[in-house]
Simulated assay, not measured.
Amino acid sequence: MKFGKRGSILLCIATAVLLTTSACSGGLLGGGGNGGDSTGDSGPIKLGMVIPISGSSAPTGAYMKNGAQLAVDEINKAGGVLGRQLELDVEDEACDAQQSVAGANKAVSNGVVISVGGYCSGATLPEIPIFQKANIPMIIPAANSQDLVNQGAKNVFMINGTGKQQSTAALAFIKKQKFATVALVDDNTSYSKDINTETKSQIEADGAVKVVLSTSVTAGESDYSSVVRDIMGAKPALVYWTGYYQEGGLIINQLKNAGFAGQIMVADGSVDPSLAQIAGAGADGVYATMTQTPDTLKGAEDWIASYKKAFNSDPGPYSTQSYDAVRLAAEAIKQAKSTDGAAIITALEAIDGFQMFSGPLKFTAEHTLSSGGFVILVIKDGKFSLEDDLS
């Protein structure tokens, strides 16, 4: 999908959050007059959001929390859902599996009816059986490992492109740029390893590009000289880093200092302003596979202004997806006329044409997006900007 079409979609979204009955979204913001809640409860409807609010990924968690809260505030101002107000219950996952389990259990205890969180795939995976047992649907706005899809959990719906779709986008760009050789490097987490493995598989099946190195590093270290030596020895035209921005920034910096003359590309977990700060001067020219960010969306100016007015800061990665996760949750509750988990799941499966930043939504049989919506970004003057729209 090209950005011109996205512009009209953004206008449609803006209309949906202002009107109680929207021809664009099918009436997202209907109040009490649009059907009673079958539970008979008149208190707030709680949405759970387990995201990193501590640890190195906390800045991304803040973007997600703010994006979700902006949607909650707009929906509540327009009358809520089924005559009730929404309430966001944010719990910490810290990109840690043990912490995420505690956060998910706390959200369940607090009475949430839908989960709208999930950033680190390795932390989101163990939440699935917890929410599944509690009959709570999960709308995942960021985490996108294929492992999440492979669980086959009926309660899981992903509104970010999957790892497989990201690998497909990466290969398309690699071939378009005529990179003959590639080195793939991951951090051994579920998300990162998934993209490495899938990209390697797709490259080898295609046959046009040669993988000269596929390796893993340990997250949290400061010295990556060993993998830098391996990369320099393999002499790839392109290095594709599929981990997070903390380690990615260090590897880029150390590669450049070692005299690496090839190109570097990172996956979506590294799309954060901090990557360029950590990488230093060598960051300019680094590519990234990514779904939409606010500043790369044509027509998002009004939404960005609303975000900045509400939080006195610029929106960042996954703020728009988190905003849409809340809107989708509200629409599903409205269509289900209930906060019962099974009824909401049925409503989510029946969604057809609901307008999000990524385009009209209709889930596949696997509860994923039919199109990943990945674009290629490039760092210029320390900031990510649009390089190529592959959608």
Rank of each mutant, 00 (worst) to 15 (best):
G243H: 04
L275E: 01
A107F: 01
T168Q: 15
K193I: 04
K154D: 15
L386G: 07
G248M: 06
G248W: 03
I278E: 01
E93P: 00
D284N: 15
G359F: 02
G220R: 10
Q254A: 10
Q202F: 08
G118N: 02
K2V: 11
I159P: 02
Q165Y: 14
V112L: 03
Y245K: 03
K193T: 14
T124M: 05
T189M: 05
T39K: 07
A336K: 01
Q335C: 00
G118E: 06
V217S: 00
I379L: 03
T162W: 04
S225W: 05
T320V: 13
R84G: 01
G373Q: 02
L28Y: 02
I345S: 06
T199E: 11
K106N: 12
L377G: 15
C12P: 00
D187T: 07
L369W: 05
S322E: 09
A281Y: 03
K133A: 15
D381H: 14
V239K: 08
E204W: 01
G30L: 14
A104I: 04
A310Q: 13
A279N: 04
T291M: 04
K298D: 08
Q177L: 01
D92F: 10
Q165E: 15
Q202W: 03
S313V: 11
Q177V: 03
V375E: 15
Q165R: 10
V271I: 11
Q132A: 15
Y191F: 15
S270G: 15
C120S: 05
F179I: 01
S322Y: 09
S25F: 05
N34E: 12
N110I: 00
A102L: 12
T215K: 09
L88P: 14
S8W: 09
L70I: 10
P59I: 06
F131K: 13
A330T: 06
A279H: 04
V90G: 10
E91C: 05
V326R: 02
L184T: 10
L171N: 08
R327S: 07
Y191C: 11
Y287F: 15
Y323Q: 09
A94G: 08
E331F: 13
A350D: 14
D302M: 05
S385L: 01
I333T: 02
I128Y: 00
A142L: 04
S391Y: 11
S25D: 15
A208N: 09
G117R: 06
D324I: 11
C12Y: 01
D295Q: 12
G40E: 06
A300Y: 12
K65Y: 09
S42H: 13
G7C: 00
Y245H: 10
P236N: 12
E349M: 01
I75M: 07
G353I: 12
K383T: 03
L184W: 05
G67L: 04
L348Q: 07
S391A: 10
